[in-house]
């Protein structure tokens, strides 16, 4: 396997009148070709901001403060909007959470998919109808011949997500960034979409960054998982390792909620998610951490390697 993407000490800040929000703070990771990397986090963890940064979709007040995003030898943080337009859709594709708002209600779904081809290959969108039908077959859309002519409101949530996926895979991108792609869907529909993404991945060899708050889902589809908390990476490791032997106390807490004992008290994480304008000093998780030591409130943990896994916690330093 070769490396497709490398993120180095990325910082994305929101500069607001009330102060600086450190939404993504010194996050580093890499992604192999053909790999599915899951990024899990709760609200305010910075996972969506990270997705936007990777897709070049950050808008002020969000800015990349420092760090590098190396995609196939190219530093994405240095790209202008024109270069991004050439890259996005063709080599990096994005699938968003809410397919309903992403599709324009006044055009047929097929036309909107064809527009992807129009943008990258030129000519009129109508030329690409047959290609769109092929795509619809590939994403296992029921009745593709008819669905290319359907308007978004005539389609279910699952179908619309298939439309977005066909847009994303139209140009066989190297990287697909999926930001909560199944969160608005029912669990049986989600299972189908996830199955589809897996199949498409093995077919096209694309890498996928799958971002979600649903750790249980990631455990099923991701090769590796990065857990984010309050803008920082807490832990990064293979899915099976995360599931069976979580290192970071935060990950342990999450898993104990996800793997409850029957009718027993759940192991709860006290407190709530901190403000990113004034995050706790030292380790950002320490006020809620059951294993916190005195120095956790002073010393910010570095990311350290433990048996090939990455974790930011003082328990594993030194």
């Amino acid at each position: 396997m070769s490396e497709l993407l490398k993120v180095e000490a990325l910082k994305v800040y929101y500069r607001l009148p009330q102060g600086v929000v450190r939404a993504v703070d010194e996050v580093s990771f890499s992604l192999e070709r053909g790999e599915v990397l899951g990024i899990a986090g709760e609200s305010g963890s910075g996972k969506s901001t990270l997705a936007m940064a990777l897709a070049g979709l950050l808008r002020p007040p969000a800015v990349i403060e420092s760090g590098r995003i190396i995609f196939d030898g190219l530093d994405l943080t240095k790209l202008g909007e024109g270069e991004w337009r050439k890259l996005r859709g063709r080599r990096i594709a994005v699938i968003f959470q809410d397919p309903g708002t992403y599709l324009n209600p006044v055009y047929t779904s097929g036309f909107q998919v064809a527009e992807v081809y129009e943008a990258h290959r030129g000519g009129r969108a109508s030329r690409y109808v047959e290609l769109v039908k092929d795509l619809y077959r590939k994403v296992k859309m029921a009745d593709p011949e008819r669905r290319v002519h359907s308007y978004p409101h005539q389609m279910s949530g699952g179908m619309k997500q298939r439309v977005l996926i066909s847009m994303a895979i139209a140009e066989k991108p190297d990287l697909i960034i999926a930001d909560e792609p199944t969160s608005a869907l029912d669990v049986t529909i989600q299972a189908e979409i996830v199955e589809l993404l897996k199949e498409l991945k093995s077919e096209t060899g694309s890498s996928i960054i799958f971002i979600t708050h649903d750790l249980a889902l990631l455990l099923e589809i991701a090769d590796r998982i990065m857990i984010m908390y309050a803008g920082k990476m807490a832990e990064l490791g293979r899915s099976s390792e995360i599931r069976d032997n979580p290192l970071h106390p935060y990950t342990r807490g999450l898993l104990s909620v996800l793997k409850p004992e029957r009718k027993q008290k759940l192991a709860s994480i006290p407190g709530s998610i901190p403000s990113l304008i004034d995050p706790p000093k030292g380790c950002r998780f320490h006020p809620r951490c059951p294993m916190a030591m005195p120095e956790c409130s002073r010393v910010e943990p570095r990311t350290v390697k433990v048996n090939g896994r990455t974790v930011s916690c003082l328990l594993y330093e030194g």
């Binding site: 669990v187 299972a191 249980a216 409850p260």
Partner: peptide, 26 residues
């Protein structure tokens, strides 16, 4: 059966899984 097979959280608590009842259709 389909619901349990499709649900990642059910899987984590060791519920019934049968690939025959993999999710399909709407």
């Amino acid at each position: 059966k389909m619901l349990l097979t499709s649900s990642p959280s059910a899987k984590l608590v060791g519920a019934y899984v049968d690939e025959k009842f993999k999710a399909r259709g709407e």
